[in-house]
């Protein structure tokens, strides 16, 4: 028996295939394969030619030779510069994430408590700065933090200090820059979580004799863990590899791995070396990225599993 639905069925599955296949193919080609190439080139040798790295495979005298050059990785291990760079990147990103959390949580909490019509406005005001140029928002802090900048001028004018505080080109400036730039990414997921909470839980807690503080730490905070984790990952992962902020606000001794990768690539023109730096950074970030994806995937697939 021929099935009259068949052509339609075929069209449907063909259409479905296109809708998922096209973005799938695009991401495979422009997001996944590039990582494989980075991995490959990290085993190559740098050379002065076009392109500036050697081939891994050579074919001569009926012999296919694949040479994996581990120099770039040995370099990373042997030069303290890189090891220190990784450690200080993780430290700076970690401390900035905690600062973002401490500043962002109360803001998210306050927005979630606003009446509904005011919430959207407050939320828009949180997001709006991140839609203006990132570079320019970091640039704004140069004028504020300089030795003869506005903060120092104000403190000197008030007689609170006798000589300007050195803030620009120090780690402090980098912390300020990261917190300033990434704060909205902490606030949004925490707000999204908090706004869904059922306030009757808090009423129940207070009926049972909990003080507001106890109710917060026993009910609200544990319930908002997933928002905290998502926000922290959104801040931590990109700031580990941050380049612009340490370059503009940090000093020559503010080591960050994004900056090292940049100078390895653009100044030293050592592409294989830069690739090795990227591979190690990615390996370091695999756990945080997996945690982030687990939370994000739960969110994205919520309905499909209903």
């Amino acid at each position: 028996m021929t099935n009259p639905v068949r052509p339609a069925q075929f069209l449907k599955s063909f259409g479905r295939g296109l809708v998922s296949g096209i973005p799938y193919f695009w991401l495979l080609l422009f997001f996944v394969i590039p990582f494989v190439i980075v991995l490959k080139i990290s085993f190559a040798e740098s050379q002065i030619a076009q392109p500036p790295f050697t081939d891994l495979t050579s074919f001569a005298d009926d012999m296919l030779t694949i040479s994996l050059n581990l120099f770039n990785y040995i370099d990373l291990y042997e030069y303290d510069l890189y090891l220190d760079g990784y450690i200080s990147s993780v430290k700076i990103a970690g401390i900035s994430t905690i600062l973002c959390l401490l500043i962002g949580y109360p803001i998210a909490y306050a927005i979630a408590k606003l009446p509904p019509h005011a919430r959207n406005l407050a939320l828009m005001l949180v997001i709006l700065p991140s839609w203006t140029s990132f570079l320019i928002r970091i640039y704004a802090w140069i004028g504020l933090l300089k030795n003869n900048g506005l903060i120092n001028n104000a403190l000197l004018g008030l007689g609170l200090i006798d000589e300007p505080l050195v803030m620009l080109h120090t780690p402090i400036a980098v912390y300020i820059g990261i917190v300033y730039a990434y704060l909205p990414f902490m606030i949004l997921p925490i707000y999204t979580n908090l706004v869904k909470h059922d306030h009757t839980l808090l009423e129940a807690a207070s009926d049972l004799g909990a003080t507001p503080a106890a109710a917060f730490f026993k009910v609200t905070l544990p319930l908002s863990v997933s928002g905290i984790v998502a926000g922290s990952m959104l801040v931590f992962i990109p700031s580990v590899g941050e380049f612009v902020i340490p370059e503009l606000l940090g000093g020559p001794d503010t080591l960050m791995i994004g900056k090292l990768l940049w100078s390895e690539f653009f100044n030293a023109r050592n592409w294989p070396g830069a690739s090795a730096v990227a591979v190690v950074m990615l390996i370091m970030l695999i756990i945080p990225i997996t945690i982030f994806q687990r939370y994000q995937a739960k969110d994205l697939e919520a309905i499909a599993d209903d």
């Binding site: 973005p23 799938y24 991401l27 495979l28 997001f31 996944v32 980075v38 990952m233 959104l234 992962i237 990109p238 580990v240 590899g241 941050e242 380049f243 994004g258 990768l261 940049w262 990227a278 950074m281 990615l282 970030l285 945080p288 990225i289 982030f292 994806q293 994000q296 995937a297 994205l300």
Partner: peptide, 12 residues
């Protein structure tokens, strides 16, 4: 693949 670009450091 959809969510990873959201957090991937730009230099990578």
């Amino acid at each position: 693949m959809i969510t990873a670009p959201l957090v991937m450091p730009e230099v990578i």
